[in-house]
Computed example of a mutant assay.
Amino acid sequence: MLLITCPVTRADELVADRRIRSVTNHPTHVALAVECPSCGSVHVYRTGRRWESREAAPAAAAARPAPELARA
């Protein structure tokens, strides 16, 4: 089951898996073509995020030390 928002009616709809018409895997996202029960048309929903480059990953993973707490 998927919870989608129809862009035509702006209604939230709970959609069964059998209404998924296609799944396309892209380098930056996954695209789902879903038949909308509210308006009857097929909408494309994209999910995912861009992969960071391997050079930026170590810098992003570097943790800062937590600040010291003062004793009362």
Rank of each mutant, 00 (worst) to 15 (best):
M1D: 13
M1T: 14
M1A: 14
L2D: 04
L2E: 05
L2N: 11
L2A: 07
I4V: 04
I4K: 07
I4C: 04
I4G: 03
T5F: 03
C6F: 06
V8R: 13
R10W: 12
R10Y: 10
R10L: 05
A11M: 10
D12V: 13
D12I: 06
D12E: 08
E13H: 09
L14E: 15
V15H: 02
V15W: 09
V15D: 00
V15E: 00
V15R: 01
A16Q: 14
A16G: 14
A16F: 04
D17P: 11
R18A: 15
R18L: 11
R18Q: 14
I20N: 10
I20G: 05
I20F: 12
I20Y: 14
I20W: 11
R21N: 12
R21L: 12
S22V: 05
S22N: 09
V23C: 05
V23N: 00
V23H: 02
V23K: 06
T24W: 06
T24F: 12
N25M: 06
N25I: 08
H26N: 15
P27E: 08
T28Q: 14
T28I: 03
H29Q: 09
H29E: 11
H29M: 10
H29P: 02
V30M: 05
A31K: 08
A31E: 09
L32N: 00
A33T: 03
A33P: 02
V34N: 02
V34P: 02
E35I: 01
C36A: 03
P37H: 04
P37L: 04
P37I: 00
P37M: 04
S38G: 10
S38N: 09
C39E: 01
C39V: 05
G40Y: 10
S41H: 12
S41N: 11
S41E: 13
S41V: 08
V42A: 03
V42M: 06
H43C: 10
V44P: 01
V44D: 09
V44E: 07
Y45G: 00
Y45C: 00
R46I: 00
R46D: 06
R46A: 12
R46F: 01
R46T: 09
T47D: 06
G48M: 10
G48A: 11
R49P: 01
R49H: 03
R50M: 09
W51M: 08
W51R: 12
W51A: 14
E52N: 15
E52Y: 15
E52Q: 15
E52P: 09
R54K: 15
R54I: 15
E55S: 14
A56E: 08
A56N: 05
P58I: 04
P58K: 07
A59P: 00
A59R: 13
A59G: 06
A59C: 02
A59I: 00
A59L: 03
A60Q: 11
A60G: 14
A60K: 15
A61C: 08
A61T: 07
A62C: 05
P65C: 01
P65D: 00
P65T: 01
P67R: 04
P67Y: 03
E68C: 06
E68I: 03
L69M: 03
L69N: 03
L69S: 07
A70Q: 07
A70Y: 02
A70R: 05
R71S: 05
A72E: 13
A72V: 13
